[in-house]
Simulated assay, not measured.
Amino acid sequence: MNYKSIKDPIEVTYTVERSKFIGNIAKVNSIDEAQKFVKEISKRYNNATHNCWAYKVHEEGREISNYSDNNEPSGTAGKPIYGVIEKFGLSNVALVVTRYFGGVKLGIRGLIDAYSKTSEEVVKASKVVTYEKTFIYEAKCDYSNFSFIQNLMQKQNNFKITKQKFSDEVYFIFEISENNKDVVLSLLKNKVYNLNFVGNSEGIL
């Protein structure tokens, strides 16, 4: 399954009517990771007026999301933050917007706009990438077949050798995208031996 998320965590600051809003975003792979990120940012800014948040993750084949206004008026913070996650089509992501009250009340509309704007700014400042599930295999082959495999790697998308060891034969580990797996394994069928599935990972398209 392919999905869009961010590459690296990032922070931005946005000011409205002397209230300072700090947006933090990170890629997460589970509810636990999302909650841990929210706690981490809330602890970092534990003297702030509010730490509002939203997350969306795919876990065990389900899409799970949650958000919180953290004592801002209902619907003015968590939901707008989550709305930005949806607007940009992101998944496996957590976003926290911290507010330091500046003495001027923003009103319902003003709060919604401020939390939305901060969330948009932090997403725009981050690098949005597409992730996909990859499969890792190990195999052995003769030297005569290894050049074929190297050429195949150059021609096929999302197929890369991550480790190789040369002795009287070639031992190598390769990673392949879910979309390309069946094609490449079929092409390798008569070129390798001792082919074993190692596990799954996640790659950037």
Score class of each variant (00 low, 15 high):
159 F>C: 12
19 S>E: 14
89 G>I: 03
203 G>Y: 03
177 S>A: 14
16 V>R: 11
109 R>Q: 15
78 G>T: 09
119 S>H: 03
35 Q>D: 13
89 G>M: 01
135 F>R: 14
171 Y>A: 11
83 G>T: 04
44 R>C: 01
139 A>K: 09
110 G>W: 03
91 S>I: 03
159 F>E: 06
119 S>Y: 00
190 N>W: 00
142 D>N: 13
187 L>F: 01
161 I>N: 02
88 F>C: 04
53 W>G: 06
174 F>D: 14
56 K>Q: 08
186 S>D: 15
108 I>T: 15
9 P>V: 05
103 G>F: 02
128 V>Y: 03
128 V>K: 02
195 L>M: 05
126 S>L: 04
79 K>R: 12
71 N>E: 08
70 N>R: 00
196 N>V: 01
123 V>Q: 04
30 S>V: 12
54 A>L: 09
13 T>R: 15
113 D>Q: 15
121 E>G: 06
52 C>T: 10
43 K>Q: 11
43 K>G: 03
71 N>F: 06
42 S>D: 00
34 A>G: 13
68 S>C: 13
102 G>P: 08
192 V>W: 00
49 T>S: 14
180 N>Y: 05
29 N>I: 04
5 S>D: 02
22 I>Q: 10
150 Q>S: 13
172 F>D: 12
170 V>Q: 02
194 N>F: 04
131 Y>G: 02
76 T>A: 10
106 L>E: 14
103 G>N: 07
97 V>C: 07
67 Y>W: 13
83 G>W: 02
106 L>Q: 07
76 T>K: 09
202 E>S: 05
83 G>Y: 00
50 H>P: 09
177 S>G: 15
128 V>G: 05
95 L>E: 14
77 A>M: 10
20 K>M: 12
60 E>N: 15
135 F>I: 13
1 M>A: 08
17 E>M: 11
136 I>L: 04
158 N>S: 10
108 I>D: 11
189 K>I: 01
45 Y>I: 08
183 V>C: 01
33 E>V: 06
170 V>T: 11
100 Y>L: 09
59 E>C: 06
131 Y>F: 15
118 T>G: 05
156 Q>G: 01
63 E>G: 00
75 G>T: 11
126 S>F: 01
73 P>H: 11
127 K>R: 08
180 N>D: 14
166 F>A: 04
66 N>C: 10
126 S>V: 08
43 K>N: 12
